[in-house]
């Protein structure tokens, strides 16, 4: 794998994770401080299955996604009825607990050494295809009944409930759906880097994802995709700046939060532009007639 395609592949894996955060944060307003833990679950499920079994890659990936979703169901169930802060706290606790568990069950998980020698089956084109698939799925989720429920819940839980939306269920659905995508990203990560270790999934990572979503635009899939692309390749470009990179990133996020509260794209999508052009073209045609 050449340098650029390696960078692009790992960027794509991260963008998939950021898209899952978009469903949580941008659509539903769930503040998950430990979303990286679900990536950890996916990565470890893939790692263990790939080492200890002879299942084909597709089956392993699907099983990893299921593992992530089951964890999300268990974690989400007690807290979806409560305020957002509780979800932040429980997911963050889940992240710490998973790392502690992985470090201590060294006979299965390899402890702090992690799992090595996972076969590298991830290629750039496979990544692009999966990313496109996830984009389509997320876009359809946003447009579906559930997506609209989610937006209603984000804006005001009380009025959403008054309109007959089962708030807890919508939150749980979004949480499980998003965690499935995060676990997929984790699974692909394991196939890309060929090793997994527990410390890579701290809560800093989750917070990074959240800020990327916010810089892109709270409600815009296009914005999230774009900011994901920028922020995931930026570290490679700014390698010389080393530590100052994080400072710059934080400064950008603070500026955006303070002065562009809706993010770069706000509520707008790429498809809006196409629709506008089409409409303009139609009007001109009509004018010609």
């Amino acid at each position: 794998m050449s340098y650029y395609s390696a960078v692009m592949t790992s960027a794509i894996v991260n963008i998939i994770a950021i898209l899952s955060m978009y469903t949580l944060m941008g659509l539903t307003g769930i503040f998950s401080m430990g979303q990286a833990a679900f990536m950890c679950v996916g990565a470890y499920a893939t790692g263990m299955l790939a080492i200890h079994s002879h299942l084909p890659m597709a089956v392993i990936v699907v099983l990893s996604i299921l593992a992530g979703m089951v964890c999300a169901l268990l974690v989400g169930f007690p807290v979806v009825k409560l305020r957002r802060d509780y979800i932040a706290m429980i997911t963050m606790g889940f992240g710490e607990a998973i790392v502690a568990l992985l470090n201590n069950m060294s006979n299965i998980t390899g402890g702090a050494n992690g799992i090595n020698n996972i076969p590298r089956k991830m290629t750039l084109w496979l990544g692009v295809i999966i990313l496109a698939l996830i984009l389509v799925i997320t876009m359809n989720f946003k447009r579906s009944k559930y997506g609209r429920y989610c937006i209603a819940v984000k804006n005001d839980e009380l009025s959403a409930a008054a309109m007959g939306i089962n708030v807890a269920r919508v939150k749980l659905t979004a949480f499980v759906f998003a965690s499935g995508i995060t676990a997929l990203a984790g699974s692909l990560l394991a196939y890309t880097t060929t090793y997994v270790e527990p410390t890579a999934f701290g809560f800093t990572k989750s917070i990074d994802w959240i800020s990327f979503v916010f810089v892109g635009g709270v409600n815009s899939l296009t914005g999230t995709l774009l900011s994901g692309m920028i922020f995931c390749t930026l570290p490679e470009i700014l390698r010389f700046a080393d530590m100052y990179r994080i400072i710059a990133q934080c400064a950008i996020v603070l500026l955006v939060v303070n002065f562009l509260p809706n993010g770069l794209f706000g509520e707008h999508e790429f498809t809006d532009a196409i629709a506008a052009i089409r409409k303009a073209a139609k009007n001109r045609k009509r004018g010609n007639l």
Partner: peptide
């Protein structure tokens, strides 16, 4: 309220 969250965790 979410912007406060983001702002505080970034800080």
């Amino acid at each position: 309220i979410m912007l406060f969250f983001v702002s505080s965790s970034t800080l």
